[in-house]
Write a protein that binds this DNA or RNA. Structure first.
Ligand SMILES: [Mn+2]
Ligand SMILES: [Mn+2]
Ligand SMILES: [Zn+2]
Ligand SMILES: [Zn+2]
Lengths: 155, 155
DNA sequence: CTTGTTAATGAGAATTATTCTCATTAAAAA
DNA sequence: TTTTTAATGAGAATAATTCTCATTAACAAG
């Protein structure tokens, strides 16, 4: 098993390659971390993790790469209400496409699948209609529900 | 026409009062500005405007009040991708409830009504189901579509 | 209308997430 | 292996937001 076939790295590699970007050590570390954890990490959390598995990468490098990875579609960036950006791996298929329930109190983020209740279909239809009505090219969307998770409801 | 009945100030006043907050000059100026403009303003834009109509209010006061007004539900805060928060007036009725199309290039924000395509009903149903499934108390949501406005599609 | 209480203000310092700079390093094409 | 140049990392710079604290003004009570 060569280096590149592990962990779907070749997939990353192809995508990076297509954008004329090199598969560098910190870049790969970031992708590995986001792939492994299912979490929604901040840049700083990612930086801390990277420093463990790779020789220490600069925080600026982490930011620079996250920006790149978001741009080429390997990573998804979003905002959970507190003021630091969160990042999570973007999966190949849109099987994994999902939205979020975000607890205002403890900042827990729950992924929920958009395949239930025909949410996916509804959104697609909505995008088509909005697109036409406003002559607006929709590229992606952000659907979050804010409130209190079950733990925080009590306290 | 007394001072308080103008511009629905009494509505603000009641809400503030219920939360034991005073209707101060800068507080009122912020509400007036957000009411008048239909726009989605940043704290700094609001601060600039306030300084025109009221005697100059401190930027910190603007931030402090925006936070309060969001908390008690008179103002709606959201994030348009660039990294400064945007604020808009929250209307009484949920007639005015709406979502956004946000241009990634020029940051134009288009309000669209959620009453078309039964979006409102769909969301309500979705909230109910998610709420039950995850034992999560949903308080509000944020639905944004990102892409390119018609002006930016060309260039 | 005064007065007293205390929430609110405003100037600026402090904090914090993110971006920028630039000399150095290392992917990967040749 | 050599060469080219994208990428790195340390730290400085920036920018949005929050904090501090002495001063002011909203408004309830008299
Ligand atoms: Mn997620
Ligand atoms: Mn709006
Ligand atoms: Zn919670
Ligand atoms: Zn645009």
């Amino acid at each position: 098993m060569d280096n590149l076939s592990a962990k779907g790295i070749s997939w990353y590699y192809d995508r990076l390659n297509r954008h004329c970007c090199r598969l560098t050590k910190p870049r790969r570390a970031i992708l590995d971390i986001l792939e492994d954890t299912g979490e929604h990490l901040s840049a700083e959390q990612i930086h801390r993790q990277v420093s463990k598995i790779s020789t220490n990468a600069g925080l600026s490098t982490v930011y620079r790469n996250l920006e790149l990875l978001v741009r080429i579609g390997l990573v998804w960036k979003f905002d959970a209400g507190d003021k630091k950006a969160r990042y999570e791996i973007a999966k190949r298929t849109d099987e994994n496409h999902h939205h979020h329930l975000i607890c205002k109190k403890c900042n827990t983020i729950i992924d929920y699948s958009a395949s239930v209740d025909n949410e996916k279909d509804f959104i697609k239809m909505r995008e088509k209609n909005l697109s036409r009505k406003y002559n607006f090219k929709i590229e992606n969307h952000c659907i979050d529900f804010f409130g209190l998770c079950y733990k925080c409801r009590k306290s």
